[in-house]
Design a binder for these strands. Sequence first.
DNA 1: ATGCTGTTGTGAATCGTTTCATAAAAATGT
DNA 2: ACATTTTTATGAAACGATTCACAACAGCAT
Lengths: 329, 329
Amino acid sequence: MRTKSTTPTIKDVAAEAGVALGTVSKVINGLPVGESYRIRVEDAIRKLDYHVNSYAQGMKAGKTHTVALLIPNTQEPYFARLTYHINLALLKRNYRMLLCSTDYNQAAEQEYITMVQQNKVDGIIGLTYNPELTIAENIPFISIDRSIGPHVPCVASDNFAGGQMAAEKLADLGCRHVAFLRIGSSLSNEPNKRKAGFENGCLARDLSYDMKILEDGDSIDEFNDFLMEHMHDGRLDFDGLFCVTDHVAFQVLKMLQKLKVQVPEDVQVIGFDGTRAFGKEEYVCSTIVQPTEDIAEMCVELLLQENLTAKPPLVCLPVSYGHGWTTRE
Amino acid sequence: MRTKSTTPTIKDVAAEAGVALGTVSKVINGLPVGESYRIRVEDAIRKLDYHVNSYAQGMKAGKTHTVALLIPNTQEPYFARLTYHINLALLKRNYRMLLCSTDYNQAAEQEYITMVQQNKVDGIIGLTYNPELTIAENIPFISIDRSIGPHVPCVASDNFAGGQMAAEKLADLGCRHVAFLRIGSSLSNEPNKRKAGFENGCLARDLSYDMKILEDGDSIDEFNDFLMEHMHDGRLDFDGLFCVTDHVAFQVLKMLQKLKVQVPEDVQVIGFDGTRAFGKEEYVCSTIVQPTEDIAEMCVELLLQENLTAKPPLVCLPVSYGHGWTTRE
DNA sequence: ATGCTGTTGTGAATCGTTTCATAAAAATGT
DNA sequence: ACATTTTTATGAAACGATTCACAACAGCAT
């Protein structure tokens, strides 16, 4: 009469093995149990094809072994890469990942956060551009690329060093007149430091530099206008460009092509992120590579870390240069 | 004395509102309740900032409102796109998505499937190349791009029509001698039908065609060898190529460049998938576009559909042609 | 008033784990 | 052998929501 149609519970296992519930629980959780008991329980588990009900477990423990990733989408390469590595980092620690793609929808973002209060996840790793976002003190939250508040640790690349590196690389490659092209500057976040680093690097290496900064809502075409303003006799004033992201670089490259400016002969271009074609081929342009895997590891590490007081407000991880076809070497 | 440090439960709400537990439960679940009661309960919920504990809910209901997506990774564009749209389709129905990136690790895949038995998710949508994969009858599973068994519905593009469309498009563009380049043919899955469709299209339009098919483990360089074999007097024998995926097309394009074969002047190339640069820019090559959004919708629809018997074994969705720079128009 | 329906609110029992105070058994000392 | 300490197993209670048999009550007819 064992063949109950329902899935077996710990009670069934206990009955099958002829032991108490508590004993089965201990075996499941790897707590010390007499050898003979352990064997009997394990046999029973195998025999009944028993699996713990993680919802019952979760209810009791108040822990879910699940983390939410809040991210605009999984399509843009940088996001896709982050998603992938964070998933892997969580997996390594036997945690599951709930994907919360927000599509830049601020309401959805805030809603996801209330999810934590419903005990669906143990914590959140979030990359969000929502300026309204409020995160209660008691919610374990790690922010990527953006400082939200003193109680929310932020993990990012060393964007200042990245900007500096871009300037230095352009100088090394013989550039004298460079420019920085940037969009989405309104939100105060870590990537904004790329500008300061770049300026710093230009000054150190005695490069003359210009900037074109687009605010939210500005059309990307303004970069085209900017470039045209700096064309004289069919030649561009600049011999080096640093774009705030590879995506911007990609769009700028298309404009340069239309303007018949040769890359990298006439002007060398460096982007930011480390985007690769198909996620695995060569870099789509020369780029400052974000250490995505390290960022992912650090986020997970900090989030799961028990000691809340030891959490640093900001962690910057070192970037590197990735050579693509848009620079000479 | 209301200020218990723990999160409020339904019991606290009942006490605050001065009603019974069952009444609160009804309000939460939108069941009919007297107006005055409803208001009192809703006020109490607001006042206590109460949120249901979904683990307690899940335990009782045996349902989790969560679906697992089993996918090799989220980096390759096609996968990233699928992930994105499936996430959105689930969100629309108020379902959550657990991302299970398997990195082609077959053990991990099978392990994820046992997760369902632990009641972590209500069902699985899976895109897997694991030939060993076994899926118990009682697990709700929808397969993408691969027929696994009669009890597992499969959703895919109409790959046959896609292959045919590629041939017809090449014919329309004036090609006479074409070739099909393909990798990973070992696993019998839906994308394999691209070949049959292409052959069919070539015959219908009287195109002479050749094929180069790489098995698992073969080096991509064999395509290079194939192309070189078909070079005579610096010219390629073919004026049209159909590659099994955009990724293959991308790699082939690099080879053609090295061989100094002009695209699209000397040879026109069509890929498959509909890959866009940065997920949103133009197509990386001319391509047969998979209706990713429709595929996502269909998967979710089928998975959540109650009536198991009405589930079709295979759903093929229509593809379209996407023009990129690798064909003349 | 009394009895009969038809609603609507109530709260004990339940889901499958884990916990922990208690009981039983084993190990140790005298 | 017996008392004492240590180790190990036991199972009732608890976690927080839902269910459902039952109680309470309102409405209506007689």
